[in-house]
């Protein structure tokens, strides 16, 4: 890891360690869940060059699966999270096999269409409780000993999940696999002519991205003790695009910063009501027009260091 990224990682760790002293911890946990979601999304678009417009289906599916497993089947939290993540991975495999052979806008449209089908299924399926969602999900005892009803135990768990996910993504990007993935993003025809079966590499990237997005959704369901339609709605797929672009597409830390900005706006500008969307739209336009690399992308470019 280059020094600039080690420092950034240290800063990020110190921030999430110290921030709950000053900021509402549930807000921070929400930010970390969305940061992981955005990082997972960025793995696919920033390093694989694939724009998915249906990533909410993984966030939401994992949320429902975790909530159902914890509440109805009485799963311990670690198994509920694993179950939710596995459900997202399975969905990733099935949708990936269908979508991955198409490129560009066609890929985006197929993922959107599949996500919409999933959304309407959840809207009708009885186990999701439709508009109400699965409420009062028990957080349970982690490994049978740690009571997650305690806010600090929950906070520590979310932090551990977030950093584990973040470091895994970092490793994927900086692995022999990540190297081939970048080559495909840069020049797909050339990667083929060098003998790489690009479809299989893209499918694996899609699968990893779906799984990690699922991990974020599963964790989020326990934090809020709720799984609802908001997380599978197409606007959630749009929001993660916004987070990633705002923070810096294809940077390591960008999605974290982008997620933080968006979540902060939603929380602290909530009294503006529907105007939050307008403000977000305006920020998006400004971002695209003036700092196209995103906050972290521009910062890295200015410092001439990878971030």
């Amino acid at each position: 890891m280059p020094r600039s990224q080690k420092i950034a990682l240290g800063v990020m760790f110190a921030f999430f360690l110290a921030a709950p002293l000053a900021v509402y911890p549930v807000f921070l946990m929400k930010a970390m869940c969305f940061a992981l979601f955005a990082c997972a999304f960025n793995l696919l678009i920033g390093f694989g060059g694939l724009l998915s417009f249906g990533h909410a289906m993984f966030l939401g599916t994992a949320g429902y699966a975790t909530a159902h497993a914890a509440k109805v089947w009485g799963f311990a939290p670690e198994f509920a999270i694993l179950f939710g993540t596995a459900a997202a991975a399975l969905l990733g495999l099935v949708t990936g096999l269908l979508a991955i052979r198409r490129q560009g806008i066609y890929f985006a449209m197929i993922t959107l269409a599949l996500a919409q089908m999933i959304y309407f299924y959840y809207l009708q399926a009885p186990f999701t409780y439709g508009e109400d969602g699965i409420q009062a999900v028990p957080r349970g005892m982690l490994f049978g000993v740690i009571d997650l009803a305690n806010i600090w135990a929950m906070y520590g768990t979310v932090m551990a999940v977030f950093f584990a996910g973040f470091l895994l993504i970092y490793r994927v990007i900086h692995s022999p696999f990540g190297q081939v993935l970048k080559a495909i993003r840069e020049n797909e025809q050339r990667a083929i002519s060098l003998g790489y079966d690009v479809t299989r590499y893209k499918l694996l990237a899609y699968l990893l991205s779906a799984t990690l997005a699922g991990l974020a959704g599963a964790t989020k369901a326990l934090v809020f003790q709720l799984a609802s339609l908001t997380d599978v709605h197409w606007s959630m797929s749009g929001e993660v695009v916004l987070m990633t672009l705002l923070g810096g597409l294809g940077t390591v830390f960008g999605p974290v910063v982008g997620a933080f900005i968006i979540i902060t706006m939603e929380n602290y500008l909530a009294q503006l009501g529907a105007w939050v969307t307008v403000v977000q739209g305006a920020i998006f336009v400004i971002c695209v027009l003036t700092f196209r690399r995103g906050v972290v992308g521009e910062l890295g470019n200015w410092l001439k260091k990878p971030l």
């Binding site: 994927v172 692995s175 022999p176 696999f177 190297q179 081939v180 080559a183 060098l194 694996l204």
Partner: peptide, 22 residues
């Protein structure tokens, strides 16, 4: 150039390994 040399390893699906192996 290394992307091409990497092909000799067979398929590079090992996303859990560090770049050092290259």
């Amino acid at each position: 150039v290394r992307i091409a040399l990497q092909r000799k390893r067979g398929a590079s699906f090992d996303f859990w390994r560090a770049l050092r192996v290259l």
